[in-house]
């Protein structure tokens, strides 16, 4: 039965992928393409949809893993402060106009910010040779506050123009997706997903508690550490590719748990695929609803997803909360 569901999910993802390529402010049918349309399809829409898919995958998988590591249904990839650090670094770059690497400057800065913050949080999570979820959570929240405060400081000191640009990036900006970013993004997300999938059984055990996990043959601290690295990589990749897209990390795992159960070996890939599909859809909506303007993708994601989540919540048996 669950195999069938996975197959259905897979087909939904393919369908969404196809729609995102074809639909948009103007519909492009793959059959009859003239030069302009071919260019739009291959150099603008295709990279954009791929980036959206990568980001959604990274966020969905990270959310599932993190909710397991922290044993907390409200955990989301941004609770570790990684996104705040990334936003701070990106905003600094955008507002001060650093462009030493051309158009990949902002993603690179965001990635550095993410890894740096993730690193600090990770180090703070260690005590007595162990890697503790409560410490991780608190360190993440603390770093989040610090980075947000610094970010708000920078933005209040900048011109309105600089602030608007930084804000548009932070709200989720897929408009600058190009082929340059895809190799790095794919590599990072792939590493993260493979890493977390390889540890999915351990994650199942961790959820039961450290003693039980230990008695089942896993080294809880080591597993947690490896999973944390995978979450860090995926979240850093996602935020650096296109800013902060909320909702997916937090709620996609819950939605998928309803359909597929809580076994992480299935939940992680399901959340990843679901996240990818949702973000592709949200991006499609954001560029189609008020043409030629583009809305921030993060906003559309939450507007689409949150009501659905609330609806599921009303059905008492739906979610694991």
């Amino acid at each position: 039965m669950s195999q069938l569901k996975i197959l259905i999910l897979f087909f939904i993802v393919l369908f969404v992928f196809f729609c995102s390529l074809v639909l948009g402010p103007k519909i492009i049918m793959p059959g009859a393409l003239d030069d302009v349309e071919r260019e739009i399809l291959f150099s603008i829409r295709l990279p954009r949809v791929l980036v959206a898919f990568l980001m959604g995958t990274a966020l969905g998988a990270s959310g599932a893993v993190l909710q397991g590591i922290l044993r907390n249904p409200l955990a989301d990839p941004y609770v570790l402060g990684i996104s705040s650090g990334a936003s701070l670094a990106a905003a600094l770059g955008i507002i001060s106009g650093m462009i030493f690497l051309g158009s990949v400057t902002t993603p690179v800065l965001a990635f550095i910010g993410a890894i740096a913050t993730g690193g600090i949080v990770g180090v703070m999570g260690i005590k007595r040779g162990g890697f503790w979820p409560e410490r991780l959570l608190l360190a993440g929240v603390g770093m989040s506050f610090l980075c947000s405060a610094l970010l708000m400081l920078i933005m209040s000191l900048s011109t309105d123009e600089g602030m608007r640009r930084a804000t548009l990036w932070i709200f989720g900006d897929l408009s600058m997706s190009d082929w340059q970013r895809i190799p790095y993004g794919s590599a990072l997300v792939l590493i993260g997903v493979v890493l977390s999938l390889s540890r999915a059984k351990a994650l199942n055990a961790l959820i039961l508690g450290d003693e039980l996990a230990h008695s089942l043959g896993f080294a809880p601290q080591r597993e947690r550490f490896i999973l944390f690295i995978s979450v860090g990589l995926m979240t850093a990749a996602s935020v650096s590719l296109g800013g902060m897209i909320g909702f997916i990390g937090l709620l996609m795992p819950h939605i998928m748990r309803f359909f597929f159960g809580a076994d992480n070996r299935i939940l992680i890939p399901a959340s990843a695929l679901g996240g990818g599909a949702l973000l592709c859809t949200a991006d499609l909506v954001s560029r189609t609803v008020l043409p030629p303007m583009e809305l921030p993708a993060g906003v559309v994601t939450a507007i689409i997803g949150a009501p659905y989540f609330l609806y599921l919540l009303r059905r008492k048996d739906a979610l694991s909360i």
């Binding site: 948009g24 402010p25 103007k26 302009v36 260019e39 739009i40 603008i44 829409r45 548009l168 408009s175 560029r287 043409p291 030629p292 303007m293 583009e294």
Partner: peptide, 11 residues
Amino acid sequence: YPKYSLEEVIR
């Protein structure tokens, strides 16, 4: 001052 679609510019 809209955030403009690159697709639209090309079109």
